[in-house]
Computed example of a mutant assay.
Amino acid sequence: MIGVVGEALIDLKAAEGDPRRPVAHPGGSPMNTAVTLGRLGAKTAFFGRLSTDAFGRLLREHLRGAGVDLRWAVEAAEPTSLALVSVDSGGAASYTFHLHGTADWQWSPAELPDAPGLDAVHAGSLALALDPGGPVVADWLARLSETTTISLDPNVRAELLGDRDAYRLAVERWLSFSAIVKVSDEDLAWIWPGADLARLARDWIAQGRRLVVVTRGGDGSLVHCGGREFAVPAHPTALVDTVGAGDSFSGALLDRLDRLGRLDPEGLARLGPDEARSAVEFASKVAAVTCSRPGADPPWRSEVA
């Protein structure tokens, strides 16, 4: 089983043709990744704090509809987090968040199981970055990393992160226990302004990361694995918007590695460049389908088989 830990929130987006009427869509980077995995047929569990309010029930229904296991999801008394989504004429999405006192950030150590018996856990985004729960999740992942593959996507939301230097230190800690790193060039440019992105990826591989993928939107991805560096082009698509594209990329990447027998720690240690290329090509295809329709709506396996 593949675990995903993090936030599940509601994206509020103006209805098509009527900006006065917002429409609620399930969202949140980790939840989108879990839904992608579930729709692709991977055995997936979501570790999230889901409110008991109406939006929280909508999120549970959305996850269950994709076949995601919610045995470890917490029933939280706090309200659901909200994000207001704006999409520009080029399809790029921006977000305004309403997070004060909401469910996703209140993790306590007792809410995370000591030994869930997973092959891999994917993490990142805001639930790993924001207090008070972020350090609790990070400590849990560090312990799990001794027997479980940890996959990281920082998914930077700069307006919520405060001091850049403090956040950079947190990312460096997360990298120390992560075996797979998927990160966008935009995220890297904010965390390490002016840095050579290829050099960063090479350093991470030298320090023990098994697979590093730097996504560059329409310019494709740069992949570092098994002593090789290579580019994988973006899959062509008719762009509607980019909401959830990076999250579906992460889910599809893990799904393909799992089907190749290269996701658990023992299998990942044997991952070769050709297999890594295959996984990134599949992830690019899944992300392209997500970009071709509005909102975070990743494809089912039958749509990309």
Rank of each mutant, 00 (worst) to 15 (best):
D187H: 02
A24Y: 05
S250T: 08
A66C: 02
D119W: 00
I2T: 14
V136G: 00
V212N: 02
V286A: 14
A276P: 08
L59M: 12
R209K: 15
A305F: 06
L260W: 06
L84S: 06
G67C: 05
R202T: 13
D255A: 10
V121N: 01
P132V: 07
E303S: 05
A305S: 13
W190F: 08
G91K: 06
T147H: 14
L260F: 11
D165C: 00
G28W: 02
T215S: 08
P233T: 13
N155C: 04
R216N: 08
P132N: 07
G117N: 12
L144K: 11
A231D: 13
V213C: 10
M1S: 14
G41C: 09
V35A: 11
A234V: 06
L200Y: 01
K285G: 13
D88I: 09
I191G: 07
G27D: 08
G246P: 06
P26K: 06
D165E: 15
A73C: 11
A127K: 07
T33F: 03
A189N: 04
F97E: 02
L161S: 04
L82T: 01
D163S: 11
T149G: 08
P299K: 06
D297E: 12
R256K: 13
G267D: 10
A24S: 14
R164Q: 13
P265N: 11
D219V: 02
D53F: 04
L260Y: 08
S221E: 12
G244E: 09
T80A: 11
S302H: 10
A45E: 12
G27S: 06
E159C: 04
A66H: 07
R202S: 13
R216M: 12
P109G: 03
A123G: 01
W72L: 03
F55G: 14
E281W: 00
V214E: 04
T44V: 11
V23D: 00
V156T: 03
R49T: 03
G90D: 13
L130K: 05
V289S: 08
L144M: 14
G162N: 07
A288K: 05
L59H: 03
D114W: 00
P233Y: 06
L260P: 12
G3W: 10
A201N: 10
P298L: 09
T44D: 01
D69Q: 03
A127I: 03
V280R: 09
H25D: 11
G226S: 07
L82C: 01
L84V: 11
H62Q: 10
A305W: 04
D264Y: 00
L50N: 01
G246K: 07
L197P: 01
E78D: 12
A234S: 15
A110K: 15
W204L: 11
Q106N: 15
A206K: 14
P265C: 12
D241C: 10
E111G: 01
T102A: 02
V23W: 00
K13A: 15
R301N: 00
S176I: 08
T52W: 00
R210C: 02
V35M: 01
S184Q: 04
P26G: 00
R168T: 09
V232Y: 09
R228A: 15
G56M: 09
L253S: 01
L263A: 09
A287W: 12
G56V: 06
I180H: 06
S89T: 14
E281K: 13
E229M: 04
G17T: 13
A283K: 07
R164W: 12
T242R: 13
V232S: 15
G267H: 03
D69L: 02
R209I: 07
P132A: 04
R64D: 03
